[in-house]
Amino acid sequence: MKVAYALLTVGLALVVQMALARYAVGGRWVFDLVLVGVVYAALYWGPVAAMWAGTLGGLMQDALTGSVIGVGGLAKTVVGFGVGLAGDQFVVARPSVRAAAVALVTVGHRLIIVGLLAVVNQAWNGVPWAAVLMETGLNAAAGFLAFQVTDALPGVILQTRQRRRSSLGRRRW
């Protein structure tokens, strides 16, 4: 079930990524919501679910961008494994800490991809640090929003239910 949730999360992230990227063509706004989805899956459902999510999300991205299939898949699998294990070992509960994890992972993920592409293409093109910085900021912001909403949602639903119940109670009285 955890794996199914993780795959759904990454699928949704991919759809949102492509829908939003339509308004950000040209490389000015660089973000990777699939990566955010993988980190989310790793922190909520553990390394196994996150690895499957990373594999599927990365392969889909590779296939859709015409890149060497497996590069993004491997990078995201590594991320899912690493973050999942770290999430099991340490308490990463606050949304701001989780967003910081997303930022850290974004840099690592980009370095893995640049390294793998250098090996595959037998050419080193350097690290596009400006793009990495932009991606790190936007991914962290998206992660913070996702974690904040997920954390706040149960409380909001509970409050709404309680309010409704108390108003019904008053009506009966």
Binding site: Q17, L20, T65, G66
Partner: peptide, 15 residues
């Protein structure tokens, strides 16, 4: 009509 952008950052493709 353009209906989609990059699946991954930096790919520079549209659908």
């Amino acid at each position: 009509r353009v209906i989609g952008g990059d699946a991954a950052p930096g790919a520079l493709t549209i659908t």
